[in-house]
Design a protein around this nucleic acid. Structure first.
Length: 367
DNA sequence: AACAAGACCAACCGCAGGACA
DNA sequence: CTGTCCTGCGGTTGGTCTTGT
């Protein structure tokens, strides 16, 4: 593994970029593309190392970058995604349209982290610091952590696919749908069959909105959760344990999606399953428990998307009516009123975090 | 007005890992 | 299979700006 010679060679300029340097870099990339970053500085007439040029381009000069203040929705998304993914800034950035990982990382470190800390919430675990948790709560948190692991892996896979699809060049979906998010890009990258019209998605929040997609009907929830958690309880810390479980889902999906077309280069079971899920969604299948049951006739199906199945998505949102008016209706209210107690507490916990954060804008003297 | 402290954020550093000869 | 090149990523630094005294 070679280290970039950038830091080892002398003669390269460091420090802030001047407008002239920006102009040179921009002009060169617009005309020739960046090609090899290491070769670029000499060709563009810059006294910078390639690494510095790449960073300047990706974090500042790229035309598809959104700058300026973070909106409330963006901040919510960052908090929620960070709870799932931790410091995986590139993955988080992939789900926040037009924001760079560096910008998100800075915003987290300078604003959001402090806000959570001042609210008595551990910004690493996203759990209340001083709150004494009972055994039941700890158990629920363990379950939620496990679900979060699963969802985190899924989000990361989606981000990877988005990156790959972007590398293939300008994306017609992107221009057609504006910033409507990574799910469409993933469809574009992975689906070979003609697609039905895609449902309208809230801007930038496709994955999060997916969590909102559906709740299990309350009576089925407990059976499903028991099945799920029994299967996962042997190794809560291992992602591979989750993936083992996912094979059941994979088999189920194969039953449901005879019309799927999976590229042959996705040999990895996990990756194949991710593609299959996305294709199912693209073909109009819902990935919620009931729809899978209908497709397969099996009531004991394990869903890969535990977060969605257990309703954790809704736990992360404080105001579904505001963000997702199309899905915030009967189901949301029904489940909110019928959830088992501890799950309801967890839901309240997440809601409280977001409420507190939302009620305390960045320029508030409180923060 | 001058200085200090804190906040902010662009840029850097170094490691990890994919691609390729 | 191995070594090198190159890019991507997360953590950190340090210069600049803002706020308080």
């Amino acid at each position: 593994m070679g280290r970039s010679p950038c830091s080892e060679k002398v003669g390269f300029k460091k420090g802030p970029w001047t407008p002239d340097e920006d102009h040179k870099l921009l002009a060169y990339i617009e005309q020739y593309g960046h090609g090899s970053w290491l070769a670029l500085p000499a060709k563009a007439g810059l006294q910078r190392c390639g690494k510095s040029c790449r960073l300047r381009w990706t974090n500042y000069l790229r035309p598809d970058i959104k700058r300026g203040r973070f909106s409330l929705q963006e901040e919510q998304s960052i908090i929620q995604l960070h709870a799932l993914l931790g410091n995986r800034w590139s993955v988080i950035a992939a789900h926040l349209s037009k924001r760079t990982d560096n910008e998100i990382k800075n915003h987290w470190n300078t604003h959001l982290k402090k806000r959570l800390t001042k609210l008595g919430i551990d910004p690493v675990t996203h759990m209340p610091k001083s709150h004494a948790l009972g055994p039941d709560q700890l158990k629920d948190i363990a379950n939620l952590n496990h679900m979060a692991q699963w969802e985190g892996a899924r989000l990361e896979a989606e981000a990877r696919l988005v990156r790959e699809s972007k590398l293939k060049g300008p994306n017609p979906f992107q221009t057609q749908l504006g910033s409507s998010g990574s799910a469409q890009l993933v469809y574009e990258a992975t689906i070979t069959a003609p697609l039905p019209p895609l449902p309208l998605q809230p801007l930038c929040l496709d994955v999060l909105s997916a969590w909102q997609g559906s709740w299990l009907k309350a009576p089925k929830y407990n059976d499903f959760a028991a099945h799920t958690f029994a299967a996962t309880s042997s190794s809560l810390d291992s992602l591979t344990s989750v993936l083992d479980i996912s094979k059941k889902g994979e088999a189920m999906i194969m039953n449901a999606g005879a019309e799927l077309e999976i590229p042959n280069d996705f040999q990895d079971p996990k990756e194949r399953m991710e593609i299959e899920l996305l294709q199912l969604q693209g073909l109009g299948y819902s990935t919620d428990h009931d729809d899978y049951s209908m497709a397969t006739g099996n009531e004991n199906i394990l869903l890969p998307n535990f977060m969605e199945a257990a309703g954790l998505g809704d736990m992360l949102f404080d105001s579904p009516n505001q963000l997702y008016p199309s899905i915030a209706g009967e189901n949301y209210g029904m489940v909110a009123g019928t959830c088992c107690g501890n799950l309801e507490e967890n839901k309240n916990y997440w809601n409280n975090i977001l409420n507190l954060v939302n009620c305390s804008p960045s320029d508030s003297p409180v923060f």
